[in-house]
Nucleic acid binder design. Structure first.
Lengths: 292, 292
DNA sequence: CTGAGGTCATAACCCCAGCTTATGAGGTGA
DNA sequence: TCACCTCATAAGCTGGGGTTATGACCTCAG
């Protein structure tokens, strides 16, 4: 797939081969194998170079998606390795670690290839502790308050959304749902103790107590899958359901009088302004989501 | 990665191995290799089974993303193969083919594993022609009007968005941008002739002529990359930028008095209501995005 | 018109990653 | 305590995918 994308960009098999550090025949063979496997001509070869087929362009876009996901995987994994000699130690809440950090890390890797990052993921309290104790250089937390003893900057907003499958009655509503109805309707939820759950319960408190679980599932993905399958309404971070919303596999249900937004903050030990790689990463995240 | 996800689900290396059709030692070795490569312990082995590590859970989520992208790639490619004996021939516009169809096809494949689908991608006119001539059983077009001679149903809405990098002045605006300003500001655009470009020009016509290109780029990805890099404002389908928006790599700029929505429609030859596999697929897409 | 420099394809050879089968060691539950 | 599950180790084979060497084809400049 890398080869395919490289060919798309460079317009020549040989050139792409050189970029990937393999020999030209290897590239030729690989391409041929891919085309045979897919049963579709992907590139139009000519002595002047290779151009993508119509189908090839489509396939290339799909391949690019796979490569992006793989790059994120890679960056995340590399950070998790957490050698002690990493020049930048990051601690992040689960949501940030799962959805945002990999992208930042790949971007960081592009700009500063030398930077080794280590990652520790945990809940906001644990992150704060790690940063305060100096075990991490930079932390990312979601929540309403800034942990004591730390300086912080808001780098973005996360919002919990009430989502349902398109076939669910709530999807057809024209007016926002009353918060009280959310409080009384059994919902698909993460297990007790998750950050998502805490924010939800806090928000629902004035509207008739904590959320009522229809099912408690162990992972975000499990909740999503159940919701898409029509098991019931779910409450999830907008980061987790962006894809499903844009493909209309899930529908966002507006709720009246319920503020489920929470700030995403970068934190560091009070006084010690981030420098070096920490500053690079922070710049990246702030460029990506400035305080508005 | 499949192995990792399978282990997460089944709680045992051997069981996962059986599911993937490989031997238990192979699974054991593979896992060990993955852990060595990443430098992180992913599963906690015990004689009673294997449970994911904290890090393992994180890695598994990232892996799942890769696998989803790969499944879409696969489904798309399989459809492109387009053997003549395919039981369902689909024609789709580029946007649908690129962003929506793969997901539908994977879902279809899960529900009806036997169905062979072939795909032809092209602009809306070409899709209409294919469906009308019987070369395709079902078509998907985006646009304002229903092609003559075809029955259609709206399966969703696509919307073009004006997007900028977060550092761009437009990102900080509190009130919607006047449409006239969009018309006069040079934009990052797809090349002339693309559907996106046509819709945009039509919408801008009452506000001071067609869009002014700052750069004309050959692919959606190229436009996106340029926009994220801060080259300027871009106009893209919301489907194309869902990820970037949720990660705040791009910001949606509301525009006053400009309706850039366009319906996504499934079309078929007038009178011939879709049956069999076409009906399955249609059901899938409509379940995913019912007329509201 | 001809030779230089680019394209890609074919052929022959080689290596090692990863599979399989067979076996053993360590827990758990009836 | 024995049957049954877990996972790990060992030994041997296979083939996908790499390499180098070479050749055919096209384009362009002089």
């Amino acid at each position: 797939m890398e080869l395919l994308v490289a060919v798309a960009r460079l317009g020549s098999l040989g050139r792409a081969a050189r970029e990937l550090g393999i020999s030209q025949p290897a590239a030729s063979g690989r391409m041929r194998a891919l085309e045979r496997q897919l049963g579709v001509a992907l590139v139009r070869r000519s002595p002047g170079g290779s151009r993508l087929t119509e189908s090839g362009a489509l396939v290339t876009e799909w391949a690019r998606k796979v490569l992006e996901a793989a790059a994120d995987f890679d960056a995340g994994a590399r950070a998790l390795r957490g050698q002690r000699d990493s020049r930048l130690r990051v601690a992040a809440s689960m949501t940030v670690a799962e959805y945002l950090l990999p992208g930042w890390l790949t971007a960081l890797h592009v700009r500063h290839p030398g930077t080794a990052v280590s990652l520790a993921a945990g809940n906001s309290v644990a992150v704060a502790a790690q940063v305060a104790s100096g075990a991490a250089d930079l932390g990312f937390v979601e929540g309403l308050d800034v942990p004591a003893g730390l300086d912080a900057v808001v780098i973005g907003q996360d919002r919990l959304l009430v989502v349902v499958a398109p076939a669910h009655p709530w999807a057809a509503r024209r007016r926002p749902l009353p918060a009280a109805e959310v409080a009384t309707t059994p919902l698909l939820l993460r297990e007790e103790g998750s950050g998502t759950r805490q924010v939800l319960d806090a928000s629902l408190a004035p509207h008739g107590g904590p959320a009522v679980p229809l099912l408690e599932l162990a992972s975000t993905t499990a909740v999503k899958t159940a919701a898409v399958g029509g098991a019931g309404p779910a409450v999830l971070s907008e980061l987790a359901v962006a894809d499903e919303l844009s493909a209309h596999r899930l529908v966002d249900v507006p709720v009246a009088g319920l503020d489920l937004r929470r700030a995403l903050r970068a934190v560091w030990p009070a006084g010690h302004r981030p420098a070096g790689p920490a500053r690079d990463l922070l710049g990246l995240t702030r460029r990506a989501a400035p305080r508005r």
